[in-house]
């Protein structure tokens, strides 16, 4: 042993301090995140909204506080490579037009949004560029390439408050999303609200129910050790209540995504977050 004992004590002390995360305040790479906010006016049944991070165990919480410890960053690295990779008939990469990925700061907070009368999610924007500008094949909505790039783009907004538009053109989509949120479906006859509004904070068997916020997506889940898309997660919830899931990238999930994004107004974007 070539280390003085007192150094060992100091090092061990530091290590345990770093690991013990105060369960109420999240700081990622030294930047404070908002994980709790007053519910936006349109939410009738809740006073306070909480990031899903608040519902996880201390060990899982700690993984998100450091970009090296956060396993999602191996996929962000893959996203950086993909962003620079030429693909398709036009000989272009994402970075041919979007020279600095940092310019996407703020985009995550505003999506989904209405463009030419249609509600578009980040995946639509990525595939729009791929098919129209690059002459490349679209990526699968929840595939590894798509989630790597949406994690990279979303990361540029980390720490910024969620802020989607729900009025004007967006209003009918938002109403549709709200309708879906409160509609019971499936053999278990449950709506999103039954778990994530009426019973958040309770245990469902050994799982701690969150409010179902989407401010950290795509998210790295310990369960499957990969990045998970928002629509992929919706699909998982629907399967659990024995319902036939809507299509990823379909109108229903996009409307639900808009409504859920609006329920997170004021929470920091945590992309890419770490969840159970």
């Amino acid at each position: 042993m070539n280390m003085k004992p007192w150094i060992a004590v100091v090092v061990a002390g530091l290590a345990s301090t770093a690991a013990a995360q105060d369960q109420n305040s999240l700081s990622i790479e030294g930047e404070d995140m908002v994980t709790e906010a007053a519910a936006p006016a349109h939410m009738e049944n809740l006073d306070t909204i909480y990031s899903g991070w608040r519902f996880r165990s201390g060990e899982t919480q700690a993984l998100e506080t450091d970009d090296f410890d956060n396993p999602a960053f191996v996929f962000v690295d893959q996203g950086i490579d993909l962003f620079d990779k030429v693909d398709g008939t036009e000989g272009k990469a994402c970075s041919s037009c979007h020279e600095n990925v940092e310019d996407f700061a703020g985009l995550r907070t505003q999506l989904p949004k209405v463009q030419d009368g249609k509600l578009v999610a980040m995946e639509d924007l990525v595939n729009g560029c791929r098919t129209e500008r690059m002459g490349a094949e679209p990526w699968k909505w929840s595939g590894g390439q798509m989630t790597a790039v949406t994690a990279l783009i979303g990361l540029q907004s980390r720490g910024m408050p969620m802020d989607v538009a729900i009025d004007g053109d967006a209003a009918p989509f938002w109403e549709q999303g709200k309708e879906l949120y409160y509609t019971r479906v499936g053999q278990l006859d449950m709506s999103c609200s039954n778990c994530h509004e009426d019973n958040y904070g309770m245990m469902i068997r050994a799982d701690h129910l969150s409010q179902g916020q989407i401010n950290g997506f795509p998210t790295y889940r310990l369960k499957n050790a990969k990045l998970n898309s928002i629509h992929g997660r919706f699909k998982g919830c629907m399967k659990n209540i024995r319902a036939t899931p809507f299509a990823e990238g379909g109108d229903e999930f996009k409307a639900l995504e808009l409504y859920l994004a609006s329920r997170g107004e004021g929470l920091s974007v945590e992309t890419p977050s770490v969840r159970n």
């Binding site: 050994a206 799982d207 919830c237 659990n240």
Partner: peptide, 8 residues
Amino acid sequence: VTIGGCGG
């Protein structure tokens, strides 16, 4: 080791 209720 806990077994999740809602593995999703």
